[in-house]
């Protein structure tokens, strides 16, 4: 491949896709995932799984509690990648995004800007972790997959996500910007 061809090839990976393109591709991915794995996309069950494992390893929490969570979250009991396939997929999300960013020359190591940003990230993460574990899912599992599955819970979760986002937006304007 000469220099010119190489440049053309590179340019092909550069432009962003439209939101609608993203929507179409994500929907196709959802449907294929439902057929192949018999489950829609989800992310946070992997976090629950490892939180449980760590808790068991550290030795607090009762053993039958593990069974309750397993049952409530709908885990399949099955080497680490075999045990929790959602973890493997989550790792794939990180590396797929890295691949996309590299091919478009958009990868930048971004430093943490301030203590304030650090606090916001930690607190935001904490709230999301708690929220997703009691409502059994995040924007993907409970909202996107929930509504796609025609579950009323997806709509209720989505409505309150919106309420939360309104409150979060107010907090953002008041304390962070």
């Amino acid at each position: 491949m000469n220099m010119e061809d190489q440049k053309k090839f590179r340019k092909w990976f550069k432009p962003s896709w439209s939101y609608v393109t993203g929507a179409v591709l994500l929907s196709i991915l959802q449907v294929i995932t439902l057929i192949v794995t018999q489950e829609p996309l989800g992310i946070t069950s992997a976090f629950s799984y490892w939180a449980m494992r760590l808790q068991g390893f550290l030795g607090f929490g009762t053993p039958d509690h593990w069974a309750v969570v397993t049952q409530l979250m709908g885990f399949r009991e099955a080497l680490w990648f075999e045990e929790n396939l959602v973890t493997l997929r989550n790792l794939g999300i990180i590396l797929g995004a890295l691949l996309s960013a590299l091919l478009a020359s958009q990868f930048r190591l971004k430093k943490i800007k301030s203590g304030k940003q650090l606090m916001a990230a930690a607190l935001g993460g904490l709230l999301m972790g708690y929220g997703s574990s009691i409502a059994s899912g995040c924007n993907i599992g409970a909202f996107f997959s929930g509504i796609g599955s025609m579950s009323l819970s997806g709509w209720v979760f989505g409505l309150f996500l919106f309420v939360g986002a309104l409150i979060g937006g107010k907090l953002l304007l008041r304390f962070l910007i």
Partner: peptide, 28 residues
């Protein structure tokens, strides 16, 4: 569902990313 949705909504806005967005941005 109500409490989980609301606090997830607050958390994702102040953290600037939800579960999928956070994983994507780690990759970026």
């Amino acid at each position: 569902t109500v409490v989980g949705g609301t606090i997830f909504g607050i958390g994702m806005v102040i953290a600037g990313g939800c579960a999928s967005g956070m994983l994507m941005r780690i990759g970026e």
